[in-house]
């Protein structure tokens, strides 16, 4: 398998001189295509910053970031927007669905920015919703859906542009145990379909469902191939 994500000596530093905060320092990480991994670490460990850099939402201060063979570390905002639109799907803890749009229109939104013609948009959005098991909820507004259903709409939105990478930020943080299992099952299924899945989580139970854990502490990667079974309360705190 070839590498989809290669972080080389990545640093992200906020402020300057004596107020300097090193959110990330000398991070080296490779994620291959088809990988299914979780990013963990105590709060303040830099995992969210790493996630933003990986998701092309933020630029590193130093280092080289190869995404799908392209050096994206210093691209401008609009170029990054195009990469996010075509190659990356996002799933957030708070779903971030637009309340005035139907499930179908929410899912179709990335294709609107991708310039897909309307007829094809509707068809692909319906297919994506079917894939997450919401074929009968196309016209519902988010307020008419349960939390688990809303997150599944968000997943459908994330995969509708057939991304290489599915990036999930605490995707089960707002869900109960049953719906968490449902959502994790969808991630597993999508991963088997060939999509690389990276998720930030602080729940060991969720992390155990992924193939490996990348452990962050103090802005650095401590373990890159931690067995999910090794996660204990102690490692989580420490």
């Amino acid at each position: 398998m070839s590498a989809l994500i290669t972080l080389q000596n990545i640093a992200k530093v906020y402020g300057s001189d004596n107020t300097e905060v090193k959110a990330l320092w000398d991070v080296n990480l490779t994620i291959t295509q088809g990988d299914y991994c979780s990013i963990m670490g105590p709060s303040g460990s830099g995992k969210s910053t790493a996630m933003n850099v990986i998701g092309c939402l933020d630029r590193p201060t130093q280092g080289q970031y190869l995404f799908d063979g392209q050096d994206v570390a210093q691209l401008d905002d609009d170029a990054l927007a195009i990469i996010r639109n075509r190659k990356i799907g996002f799933v957030f803890q708070q779903f971030h669905l637009l309340p005035q749009l139907s499930a179908l229109d929410n899912v179709a939104l990335p294709m609107v920015y991708g310039g897909v013609p309307p007829a094809e948009r509707r068809q692909r959005a319906a297919e994506a919703l079917q894939r997450v098991g919401l074929a009968n909820r196309l016209t519902n507004k988010p307020s008419q859906l349960s939390g688990g259903q809303q997150q599944r709409v968000a997943i459908a939105r994330a995969i509708v542009n057939r991304p290489l990478l599915l990036l999930a930020d605490e995707p089960t943080g707002a869900l109960d145990t049953t719906t968490t299992e449902e959502v994790m099952a969808i991630f597993a299924e999508l991963n088997q379909g060939g999509i690389t899945v990276v998720m930030v989580t602080h729940e060991p139970a969720v992390a155990r469902l992924t193939q490996r854990v990348v452990w962050f502490r103090d802005g650095q990667v401590i373990h890159t191939h931690m067995d999910p079974e090794e996660i204990s309360y102690g490692t989580l705190v420490g």
């Binding site: 708070q94 971030h96 637009l98 991708g114």
Partner: peptide, 13 residues
């Protein structure tokens, strides 16, 4: 938040 989401999924400035 809507603006942030739109940008995250690929809206340009």
């Amino acid at each position: 938040q809507e603006i942030g989401l739109r940008k995250a999924i690929g809206a340009s400035q």
